[in-house]
């Protein structure tokens, strides 16, 4: 039999993922697993993963994983890489983890220019805990802790992480991508592959922000969620490459 398409061997055979139907996390896991397989770096890979919905994600890959305390994946990944420079170190984090409680670790890891790849899942809310306001919640977007919608005066503006990180001197590759349709998912995969290849070539820090959907807390079906990315989310968070000095 000629297999023309299969699931990558580094996703867990046991249970798929436990994310909600339509969730963007599962897509990114699959892309990451495909990249790891295509680059033949599984034996070298350590995935540092966060607290939040993706906090369960380690178990849904068949990769060596380190569960990091909330927000600390940037620090963990930095140190693991410094002492294991031939390994491929990935920090996979959501917006609460990376941009709220872990902002210091995120910025310092980026500023040191550590030769790691950060995959930042931006779905504009705290998913796991039930849809609270995140640093990335859009102006006007309702969350369980901003029931009247995020208000600039009361809550401040959303953090644009890719733009922020791109301003630092040390990072080498910074971009914002999406996974709500095939065209964007393919671009995201290419960016992840580029980031990992840069690690192998000792070229430095890469930051890949991925606009992801959270149908459950957005209270939208997956199709409407995808539309929301196109029509609303990507207006605040424009897709594209913010820095590429490879």
């Amino acid at each position: 039999m000629n297999v023309v398409y299969g699931s990558p061997s580094f996703t867990s055979e046991v249970m798929g993922t436990g994310y909600c139907p339509g969730c963007g996390h599962g897509t990114v896991h699959k892309l990451l697993a495909e990249v790891v397989e295509e680059l033949s770096v599984r034996e070298k890979t350590v995935l540092c993963y966060p607290i939040g919905c993706a906090g369960l994600g380690g178990g849904w890959t068949n990769l060596n994983t380190l569960s990091c305390a909330h927000g600390r994946a940037g620090a963990v990944a930095t140190a693991v890489k410094k002492t294991n420079q031939d390994n491929v170190i990935i920090a996979y984090q959501g917006d609460g983890d990376l941009a709220a409680i872990g902002m210091a670790e995120t910025m310092h890891a980026a500023n040191r220019g550590e030769n790691i790849t950060v995959i930042f899942i931006n779905n504009t809310n705290f998913g796991m805990t039930g849809g609270q306001m995140a640093p990335t919640t859009l102006i006007g977007q309702k969350a369980t802790t901003s029931p009247d919608g995020r208000d600039l005066e009361r809550h401040g503006a959303p953090f644009k992480m890719a733009e922020l990180i791109a301003k630092l001197e040390a990072p080498k590759f910074v971009g914002r991508y999406a996974v709500h349709d095939a065209k964007n998912a393919i671009k995201t995969k290419a960016a992840i592959k580029k980031g990992l290849q840069m690690q192998l070539d000792k070229k430095g820090y890469s930051f890949i922000e991925v606009l992801s959907v959270c149908p459950t807390n957005w209270k939208k079906n997956p199709l409407d969620s995808a539309k929301y990315i196109d029509e609303v989310v990507s207006k605040t968070y424009p897709l594209g490459v913010y820095k590429d000095v490879e």
Binding site: C68, R72, A75, A79, K82, A104, E105
Partner: peptide
């Protein structure tokens, strides 16, 4: 480390 917190988490990783 950039903080006590980052430092202990670096130790955790390494």
């Amino acid at each position: 480390g950039e903080s006590e917190i980052a430092s202990i988490n670096m130790v955790y990783g390494v």
